[in-house]
Design a protein around this nucleic acid. Sequence first.
DNA 1: TTCAAACATGACCGAGCGGTCCGGTTGATG
DNA 2: CATCAACCGGACCGCTCGGTCATGTTTGAA
Lengths: 200, 200
Amino acid sequence: MMRADAVRNRRLLMDAAAAEFAENGMDVSITRIATRAGIGKGTVFRHFDTKEQLLAEIFSDRLEELVTAGLRLAESDDPGAALFEFMTIGTEIQARDRSFCQAAAALSRSESAVHASRERPADVAETLVAKAQRAGAIRDDITGLDIVLLLSAASQAVLSISEDAPGLWQRYLALIFDSLRPQNAHPLPTAAPTRAQFTG
Amino acid sequence: MMRADAVRNRRLLMDAAAAEFAENGMDVSITRIATRAGIGKGTVFRHFDTKEQLLAEIFSDRLEELVTAGLRLAESDDPGAALFEFMTIGTEIQARDRSFCQAAAALSRSESAVHASRERPADVAETLVAKAQRAGAIRDDITGLDIVLLLSAASQAVLSISEDAPGLWQRYLALIFDSLRPQNAHPLPTAAPTRAQFTG
DNA sequence: TTCAAACATGACCGAGCGGTCCGGTTGATG
DNA sequence: CATCAACCGGACCGCTCGGTCATGTTTGAA
């Protein structure tokens, strides 16, 4: 059982870290984060052994948010729309924090803690895709893993644009939607990535 | 006129830096780069005032490569295929160096030297798009800037996959191709980015 | 109210960074 | 071959970073 002040500080810490990561990228100092949270530097390391672990924890939270939404959408009786909304939510989450998710994704190749938390969204995406394909809403040659990878693609597309382009990511997500529809399907040149490649 | 050893070292330096950036991201130390090039650390700063300038120079080189290809393709009499090949080349260049281009793109918001070098590919893309649209090869509601942004999207999609997935980016580029065809066009929810937003 | 365990704190550490600088070296020039 | 500006190299500087630790403070159960 954690003490009351400990849980309060942990919450403050994660919020401050998320905000700071989002604004200034992954290389903000622990000192900055601690200051923003109104907390001593040492306290940070009481809660998280290392900086990467802190980042992984936040990233994991974000993904859980997506998983929750995905599970709800899996009950929908319009599988095509459900998948599209799943992707919209996922992209919105990533677009919200800009460079943070980018850093986390890049880190997921080396940091296994980050890596593991990416499995669950992939599972959810897999079932959503399967349902949508059975309903004929999307083409047959794509997988759940494709969806997860395309999520970041849409939000990363706008990375080089100036800050104030709110909702621009929706433009590119809409384009990707169009590419998933069965009417336009041309054969894909490369096989889908395997789960082993994703999990590393 | 530069001395012979100076130009030789500059070449060695840029090659080593490009390789190191590609392998280890943007935060490799100058020392590492210098060592890899077999050159003293001080020499690096003789050629490039700052680390960002070095990165900008390399990035600019890559973009020039793309511009050259684009100008050649602008002469083609199959504008649709020309645009697609332009995108293929652009994505290949970015995929070749993985995290490097990501870092450069992120830096382009703050570093004006990097920024300026992105204008020319945008110009070329604009003319390629215009020709392709006149030929009816692609939908009318996208711009040259869209193309430039989508270039990074495809290569960034595979960022969280393990190293050895060569050519996987082609899969997602093919998907994007499908989304550009006029047959599938659904109205886009957000207006295209303006040149001012891009140039910052 | 008491008190031990859990927690917070910030001075402190070693390492590594980007960038500087000057003594020695090299290459073009006549 | 002689000369000298251009060039190279790496010790060096100031600084910031992630992470530790001894000391003081808070909490909650008894």
